[in-house]
């Protein structure tokens, strides 16, 4: 029976002393840094595309006083994004009902860095063409949502907080209500990130606004982005 060996050598140093039928393996994860910066034919391919893109994307639309980072269960980017989405459709939310905003951590695709915020930065944060929806949910679905949020160690929420594993609405309390409203994306409402509880939905309102466009609009309005590290979600251990 032949032997077939794998010798793993990571990084520098040792040389494999290979016996018959040895397959030696070396590995390196090479970091792409300035060290490799050199004009080459890739640049000439990218250049016309970049020029066209930069015409729009380098426009500075706001300023970030600090880094906005996504986090679990809480993060400054979670807070900014949910507040931005919620406030952008404020006029379309029935204020007699409890309401809040729910997004997904995985959908916040890039941090916002301290300094100038360009249109391109918001595209990187929210590259998807997802639309805002206002979903009416039966109050009994809250249990499923709370269980989901706990299992996921939180997802970005706005206009609400979680204490003792229970979702508390900031404006209207859940008491005496048969339904509540969730401001979210069509992607999540349709089961994205396994938010299966949205199958219970009673009604959906479409404000006709893309998530990204709402964020751009809010960033422009704020000029200096509102940074908050409010700990909205606190789970019981």
């Amino acid at each position: 029976m032949l032997k077939f060996g794998i010798i793993i050598l990571c990084g520098a140093g040792l040389l494999a002393c290979s016996s018959v039928n040895t397959l030696s393996v070396k590995n390196e994860q090479v970091s792409i840094t300035k060290e490799y910066a050199k004009e080459n034919r890739i640049d000439s391919i990218v250049s016309p595309y970049r020029t066209e893109l930069n015409k729009e994307m380098l426009e500075v639309i706001a300023h970030a006083p600090k880094n906005f980072e996504r986090g679990k269960p809480n993060g400054s980017l979670n807070n900014w994004s949910t507040d931005a989405i919620y406030s952008s459709v404020k006029g379309k939310i029935d204020n007699d009902k409890p309401s809040f905003c729910l997004l997904n951590w995985g959908g916040l695709r890039n941090s916002i860095n301290e300094g100038d915020v360009t249109l391109g930065d918001i595209f990187k944060l929210m590259p998807f063409d997802n639309e805002i929806v206002i979903v009416e949910m039966p109050i009994h679905s809250l249990i499923k949502m709370e269980a989901y949020l706990k299992e996921r160690n939180g997802e970005p929420i706005g206009a609400a907080y979680i204490k003792n594993d229970k979702l508390q609405f900031k404006k209207v309390t859940r008491k005496k209500h048969e339904s509540f409203l969730v401001v979210t994306s069509d992607y999540l409402m349709n089961g994205g990130d396994h938010m299966d509880f949205f199958q219970d939905k009673i009604n959906v309102t479409y404000p006709g606004l893309l998530m990204r466009d709402a964020m751009i609009q809010v960033a422009k309005e704020q000029k200096n982005l509102i940074w908050s590290d409010e700990q909205r979600i606190q789970f019981e251990p």
């Binding site: 032949l2 032997k3 794998i6 393996v25 590995n27 090479v30 792409i32």
Partner: peptide, 21 residues
Amino acid sequence: NVGRIDFEFDQKMFAKKDVIV
């Protein structure tokens, strides 16, 4: 990052049975 993995096969690499050591 770019991953790099170098496999060096010796002359009898075409083993029919892979007993990995």
